[in-house]
Amino acid sequence: MQSGLGLLVISFAAFAIIALMPADPVEIAIRAWNLAATDETVAALRREWGLDRPFLVRYGDWLVSFLQGEWGRSFRTGEPVFEEFMKRLPLSLLLGASGIGLAIALALPIGFVSALHPGGLADRLSRLLSVATQSIPIFATGLVLIWVLGVKLRWLQPFSDHAAAVMLSICLISLHSMAVLARVYRQGLQAAMAQPWFLTARAKGLSDARALWRHAHPSAFYAVIAAVHAEAGWVIGSSATMEILFGLPGISQFLVLSISARDQMVLQAYVMVVALWMILVDLLARFLMSRLDPRLS
């Protein structure tokens, strides 16, 4: 319900911003497609794309048809936006969801061992990784990895083998999100370890690892979920990079091509799709949080 309201606000804000962007799609298309820039051509295109109507009417129309799965036609390709998206969405979703899932799965053991032995190997490695992922852009990591695996070792063919490209992309995306999550998790565990009740638990004879898992993990995991929430936005950027590096036809690559054409229908749909993704992550996070800490639900 509230998410629905949020979506409505987003859709309106996005519609307004996109409609107010400086360059005019009709002007751009006329030059790009070498059409004669007569008043008739301009008027015809405006009519065809529905740009001749008042802003609020356009928004209302768009909203109604959007809800019916009719997302308008791309100005650039002339194809229905919904179909263009459905062709590309599964791949992007796969990259984003698996990337973040793998990141969590890897962050937990690393963060746990780091907290158990502060200053130990895992702790120092995870800190190094966290610094590395913030000093090396994902496309550079990607290029080196592709080169090592594809050229030097010849283990796989990242460009002609679609599955390998997808797997590599997911690994890279998760690698770049994992470091932050592992640090947050370790931080959460450490904070809990300083609490009196943790010392009590220790005093009762639980081993470090067991005490940490039983008593500190829930609250630390809670912090991880909160961080995942924020990380979901970055993941979109990472998967866009991967789509371009590996030439994977996902929605972010489609977006970049559509941006310069000011393809309003595609941009609007993209905002909505990403908003839905964020809501999905949000719902999942809140569900997990309430399971962990029922007091908050």
């Binding site: 509230q2 998410s3 309201l5 949020g6 979506l7 606000v9 987003i10 804000a13 996005a14 929430h229 924020a230 936005g233 970055w234 979109i236 950027g237 866009a240 972010s252 977006l255 941006i259 941009l267 993209y270 905002v271 990403v274 908003a275 964020m278 809501i279 949000d282």
Partner: peptide, 16 residues
């Protein structure tokens, strides 16, 4: 609610 609306605007779109 405001932050949740805010968070849904893709960083990519903001930057673009």
């Amino acid at each position: 609610r405001a932050s949740q609306v805010f968070i849904m605007v893709p960083t990519l779109i903001v930057a673009l």
